[in-house]
Write a protein that binds this DNA or RNA. Structure first.
Lengths: 191, 191
DNA sequence: TGCACTCACTAACGATTATTAGCAATAATA
DNA sequence: TATTATTGCTAATAATCGTTAGTGAGTGCA
């Protein structure tokens, strides 16, 4: 292959196409075309299309799991933990925007048993998130609100971030983005 | 067909399966199976699978467009308009949760030229939304913040709502949900 | 030099899938 | 009752797609 590391180019193109046209909407031939290769050649790099998806998704799953665990185990207050989780999300999204997009949009195309493993991991992540929020309500740092509702609202607020990195050519300052996101989630849009 | 109106059952099953397994992951045979029919029979109800997707999506597109236009044309203040837009989203999502889910997840599988029409409609919707927010900043009702960032954050905050209606069997009070969503977006989660 | 590994190819298979054609039974309607 | 529309079927087609098999050129290394 042309590039220094052929497999990395292959992975990058796969992520892009899966994100743009969806997992089922992308043929192995589409990926190969963009690399100037034939479809069967790709099986030198990966066992199957499904295995490729698993690799792409669970690589990010582990990063989010580790990021969350480190924060939860820390001695921060709940509010500080919430800020740290938001910052962790911004950072991971800034580093891997396309792959985070895949995680958000294409997880449902995982096959058993990987689909169930993914769903359990996500449930666990959300319950860790919810625990932090519940503790914040108990200490009085966070507003009293339906726990599930607040959990999903905050998660959804930061989930779109990967789109922020797509059309922009200018460099984005992740620290400033993190500050804005924390301001939005904590203070809302009203003065 | 069994039910009173066969086509309505067909539409409902299609929405459910497209949402669960994705547009490309759902075969016409899958839909037919769930109805106790054969795949070719479905072509009595619809011209093509792609035409079915278009019908399902643009029906919701029109509802959101009309809802937005009515609010923008009103004489509400910007802050009141923002609240009304959130309320409109909650109401449409409460009425058609699965179809709203489709709108969020499956639009990318529209074919030209419908894909472009959809994207232009969404861009227009977002620009109306952004205009309301910008006016709110000008009148001082809303916090000074990057306009694009706030627009996407608020939109994303309310986009997940269709998931709220999936696993729940209890009836949800849309008025209370609307109140909570407005509180979250305007005030955030901090005390 | 000889050996093994990497990475590319072509050919082909088997499965899936959207869709059309043609036909029959039933329901609605004139 | 005669006719027309609705709603279902089976059979078949044409295209797409993931994947395997088998091969060979080049590269690194013993």
């Amino acid at each position: 292959m042309k590039g220094i590391n052929g497999r990395e180019k292959f992975i990058a193109v796969s992520i892009d196409l899966f994100l743009e046209k969806g997992f089922n909407g992308t043929a192995m031939q589409d990926i190969a075309n963009q690399l100037g290769l034939q479809a069967p050649t790709l099986y030198n790099y990966v066992k199957s299309k499904q295995g490729l998806l698993q690799e792409l998704l669970f690589e990010m799953v582990e990063k989010f799991e580790k990021g969350m665990a480190d924060i939860v185990e820390s001695s921060y207050t709940p509010l500080e933990k919430l800020k740290a989780i938001i910052a962790m999300n911004v950072r991971l999204t800034a580093q891997h925007p396309h792959q985070v997009g895949l995680l958000v949009n294409e997880w449902k195309h995982l096959e058993s048993p990987h689909l169930e493993v993914f769903q359990e991991s996500r449930t666990h992540y959300e319950s860790m998130f919810a625990a932090v929020i519940r503790q914040g309500m108990e200490t009085g740092e966070l507003r009293q609100m339906d726990l599930d509702f607040m959990t999903h609202s905050v998660l959804s607020s930061i989930r779109w971030l990967f789109q922020w990195y797509r059309p922009r050519e200018e460099e984005i300052n992740p620290i400033e983005l993190e500050r804005q996101m924390i301001e939005f989630v904590l203070q809302g849009v009203a003065v």
